[in-house]
Design a protein around this nucleic acid. Structure first.
Length: 632
DNA sequence: GAGCACTGC
């Protein structure tokens, strides 16, 4: 019935309309200290609702998240799920016929899944006049949300099929609740927001009454710098900074360090948490009374021309700024210090951020829509349309993978199978290829490892040790085979976290690899993929990788170019990333998993291939002549 | 010899 996906769903709206128990939801969210995973919050809320209704969790009230389905087909009447899970359900049941009411929460956050979901719901309204929709969104977006669904109604009236009038969805506008937060701006623009943040923290500490401080910066670099400056201050003269406890917070930080942020502040002390955006929505700290907002965050941008996704530091939106400020008013009235001018806020800051769908590659998104039976992708009505260049890019990739045919329809069986696997289509294609090549056991591990950020601990400050640890697992074939070695070692250690620590492997990441691999194994078995091991035959394994990633093939330039590669298709200059085990090895032909661009384009996760495999893997994509005379 | 906002299936 409900489709919430973020912390704080329902908590700020009056939703008597939906639920007589909403008041207890509010109470629950205030009491819930399980801030860690959003999913555990969803779980906690479902469990509390079950309790309020006097039923057992998993019966009348249940929840479904990626790795957990706690529902009962015969009994469950209220179900909590993430938007991604609901989209997966739609593949089997496009009209969502088993639901009579769907509430989409936090629609204003505009994640890709939410946008796809809204577009689809708008579409199925016509076929499901009985379906009641409730969209909960920030006030600022409520109008555009309403008009998005209204325009669909006009469309329906003009349409040929007349299935009776459909009710318009109820749009609930939600407002941040909490105590009043006093906003302060700087008089003049600051030249260096890290330095400005540090000074502001010291000023607050010096002049304001007790209460913790939360500082929003952009990433680990900024955070390390600010922590260092503040720590030096604490250690040197101490007077201005006496009693300050300085703590960094970002997702790559080891769990134990993150936990420090949530330990109670000792009497007479003041905690300063220097954080990324993780503290903006994903988790909540009690005791914060002062917020320092740099006005920037790291955001993903995608350039469809170069086909490169990038993380860049960019100004935040007014909506983000308000969200950040709100973090100061959770326990009592607070103060927010914005490190930008009021004029800038009023006149230059955009009111909403750019929706994720306009900043991302669309390959996964397009295949999902195709699998949902949306044939005319370019005509799909979005809450915010992605660029047609990005769409076309995605269609090209899917066509080259053999997932779409000449009419841009899903191919059978490959297209449908790739859509079934909840990963990047290039990874999914690699898994399918591994079936014929007889190396699915290994490829599933590689697929899981490629699906997470990094299996290594975040390396700053212990680079040498991390490099040495990597060497213990390094494989001549490249990073993919190195993953296999790490995975083997991890299993042999009995999944020991001590083993992880000794080998600079991220234990939390390995846990995720295990979970994802288990899920992939279930799906693979459903698809009839034989889980065969290739033992020590790395050739078939490299061929399977090539079958998915042939579009990322690169050739080393002649000597004297210092490890410069060129992509076979686009002749783009690329280099092997120094974190790769093939860095400085520079084999002649490689395929990479992803590009990261800084001063150069760096290939991350690289494996050696034979060029003759390329036309085999994708004959329409690589004709022999393109590969030039160097194939032997 | 470099740099990893944050989710999600």
């Amino acid at each position: 019935m409900l489709a919430p996906n973020r912390e704080g769903w329902l908590c700020r709206c009056s939703c008597k309309l939906v639920f007589p128990v909403s008041c207890s939801l509010v109470k629950l969210l205030e009491e819930t200290r399980q801030w860690w995973f959003i999913n555990s919050k969803l779980q906690a809320v479902a469990s509390r609702v079950a309790e309020e209704m006097g039923v057992k969790l998993g019966e009348e009230v249940g929840y479904t998240i990626r790795f957990e389905d706690v529902t009962n087909t015969d009994k469950t009447v209220v179900k909590f799920l993430t938007d991604g899970v609901l989209l997966r359900e739609m593949m089997d049941d496009p009209l969502l016929s088993k639901y009579s009411v769907i509430m989409v929460d936090e629609a204003h956050e505009r994640s890709i899944s939410t946008d796809i979901l809204l577009g689809l719901l708008r579409k199925i309204q016509r076929r499901r006049p009985d379906l009641r929709l409730i969209i909960s969104s920030a006030t600022i977006e409520a109008k555009s949300m309403a008009s998005f669904f209204r325009s669909s109604k006009r469309h329906q009236e003009a349409g040929a099929t007349d299935l009776g009038p459909s009710k318009e969805p109820a749009i609930l506008s939600v407002e941040g609740r909490g105590f009043n937060v006093e906003i302060h701006y700087v008089e003049e623009p600051v030249p260096d927001y890290v330095q400005a943040a540090v000074s502001t923290v010291l000023l607050i500490h010096d002049q304001e009454p007790a209460g913790d401080i939360l500082v929003f910066l952009t990433g680990q670099d900024d955070i390390d710098a600010a922590v260092r400056l503040l720590t030096e201050e604490v250690q040197s003269h101490g007077k201005k900074s006496h009693g300050l406890i300085v703590l960094p917070l970002f997702s790559g930080l080891p769990r134990a360090d993150q936990d420090l942020v949530f330990s109670p502040t000792p009497r007479g002390k003041r905690k300063v948490v220097i954080s990324t955006n993780i503290a903006e929505t994903s988790l909540t700290m009690e005791g914060v009374v002062y917020v320092v907002d740099s006005g920037f965050s790291k955001q993903r941008f995608y350039n469809p021309i170069s086909d490169i996704e990038n993380l860049v530091v960019a100004p935040i939106s007014k909506a983000s700024a308000r969200q950040r400020a709100g973090r100061a008013g959770r326990v009592r009235p607070g103060k927010c210090y914005r490190l930008y001018t009021e004029e800038y806020f009023v006149k230059q800051m955009s009111s909403e951020g750019i929706p994720e769908i306009q900043r991302s590659k669309l390959v996964s998104c397009v295949i999902q829509l195709k699998a949902l039976g949306i044939d005319n992708i370019l005509g799909f009505k979005w809450p915010a349309s992605p660029s047609s260049e990005a769409m076309i890019r995605a269609l090209e990739v899917l066509y080259s993978l053999g997932v779409l045919d000449d009419d841009a329809k899903l191919t059978s069986p490959v297209g449908f199978q790739v859509a079934e696997i909840p990963l990047d289509p290039m990874i999914s294609k690699m898994i399918l290829a591994s079936d014929q090549l007889g190396c699915a056991e290994e490829i599933l591990t590689i697929a899981a490892a490629l699906s997470i950020q990094s299996i290594w601990v975040s390396g700053r400050g212990m680079q040498k040790e991390l490099d040495e640890a990597k060497l213990r697992f390094a494989a001549a074939e490249g990073d993919h085979v190195t993953f296999l070695n790490v995975y083997k070692g991890f299993l042999q250690s009995g999944k020991s976290s001590d083993w992880c620590r000794r080998n600079f492997v991220n234990a939390h990441a390995m846990k995720k690899v295990i979970e994802i691999r288990a899920q992939l194994k279930r799906i693979a078995q459903r698809l009839g993929i034989v889980l065969k091991s290739c033992e020590s035959d790395m050739t078939v394994l490299r061929k399977a990788v090539t079958a998915g990633f042939f579009a990322n093939a690169c050739r080393l330039e002649a000597y004297g170019h210092n490890g410069m590669y060129k992509t076979v298709r686009g002749s783009q200059e690329v280099y092997i990333h120094p974190s790769s085990v093939l860095f400085r090895v520079n084999p002649k032909w490689v395929v990479y998993h992803s590009l990261v661009s800084t001063d150069r384009q760096y290939m991350q996760n690289v494996i050696t291939i034979e060029p003759s495999w390329l036309p085999e893997a994708a004959p329409h994509f690589y004709q022999q002549r393109q590969l030039g005379p160097s194939i032997h």
